[in-house]
């Protein structure tokens, strides 16, 4: 029983990392209608920035905060100078652009900081706490908590502030938003910046566990995309729930299903996807979209 609870909590924490990435992808998709395959790559870059700053002698928490600021700026710049040209065009071309960006960032990080694994200091101690007779690792609880707080902040921003209202307006209908005087271009930059920041938080939290490499979040990106498919592109809450389900299920499957084990647990979300796609093609929580010709 103790093992089971520990697995669930660990799954919840990795699920939270997937959820943050998935939410970033949904954020970008709602604003600009494209899937950013470089979301994980951008997050890794900010983790490298944080790692480099700690090596310069800065305390970890300051380094992470600075890295988040960096990724907001970086995300905004990517939107303005790279994606803007492709947003109104063919979505497939835009996707290829994000893949080019992923290759570029991975290549850049590998060239500058080598492809070797780097140790990233952990924000949380590696202790365990006893809770109702079950020991649970502090890191898992902390990771989950930080990401949930980040999501709630983001939700507050979207629901409770004027900026959030403007962002939502741009997401729903960019043209009407522009007509009513909103600076659509700048708002898109803000949207990309926020998405990048969320990714940066996830990367900083998961980096100690995975150790820092340029391809650190490739797998996490796959999980995040799976969560996006399962949750439905139109439902942020659905995506987060799906990411948690994936995180927990893959952890349980790795231990309790002998054939899957730790190496093949990446297949779990896709078995899930296959089942869901047959039963509910619009995703667990998504709506069916009707397109007019």
């Amino acid at each position: 029983m103790g093992k089971f609870v520990q697995l669930v909590v660990d799954g919840l924490s990795t699920g939270s990392v997937y959820a943050a990435l998935a939410l970033a992808i949904v954020l970008v998709h709602q604003a600009t209608g494209l899937i950013n395959f470089a979301q994980g790559g951008m997050a890794v870059l900010s983790a490298y920035v944080a790692w480099w700053l700690t090596n310069q002698g800065l305390p970890l928490i300051v380094a992470i905060l600075l890295a988040i600021v960096f990724s907001v700026v970086f995300g905004a710049l990517v939107e303005r100078w790279l994606m803007r040209r492709f947003e109104r065009g063919d979505p497939d071309t835009a996707v290829v652009v994000t893949i080019g960006l992923l290759t570029l960032i991975t290549g850049f990080a590998g060239w500058l900081w080598t492809y070797n694994n780097q140790q990233f200091p952990s924000l949380f101690p590696l202790d365990t706490v006893s809770f109702l007779g079950v020991s649970v690792s502090v890191r898992s609880l902390g990771t989950t908590a930080v990401i949930v707080v980040a999501m709630l902040l983001l939700q507050g921003l979207f629901v409770g502030t004027k900026l959030g209202l403007a962002l939502r307006a741009v997401a729903i209908n960019p043209q009407s938003a522009a007509f009513s005087g909103l600076p659509v271009g700048r708002l898109l930059m803000v949207g990309w910046g926020l998405a990048a920041a969320l990714g940066a938080v996830a990367a900083a939290l998961v980096a100690p566990q995975l150790t820092l490499t340029p391809g650190m979040l490739d797998n996490a990106l796959v999980y995040a995309l799976a969560a996006v498919i399962l949750g439905g592109l139109t439902s942020p809450i659905g995506v987060v729930v799906a990411a948690w389900i994936i995180g927990i299920l893959e952890n349980l499957a790795a231990v309790y299903v002998p054939f899957i084990g730790f190496d093949l647990k990446v297949a779990v979300p896709f078995i899930l996807i296959f089942v869901v796609l047959i039963v509910r093609p619009q995703g667990l929580f998504g709506r069916k979209t009707v397109v007019r010709v």
């Binding site: 494209l34 899937i35 395959f37 979505p91 497939d92 996707v95 490739d218 797998n219 990106l221 796959v222 995309l225 799976a226 996006v228 498919i229 190496d263 093949l264 990446v266 297949a267 979300p269 896709f270 996807i273 296959f274 796609l277 047959i278 093609p281």
Partner: peptide, 26 residues
């Protein structure tokens, strides 16, 4: 399965093939 979802779902599903394929081959 993948083509049931419209748009970019094929990209999102096929990205898993190499990532699942490598451990599967091992």
């Amino acid at each position: 399965a993948a083509a049931r979802l419209g748009g970019l779902a094929i990209a999102m599903v096929t990205i898993a093939l190499p990532i699942v394929g490598v451990p599967l081959a091992k």
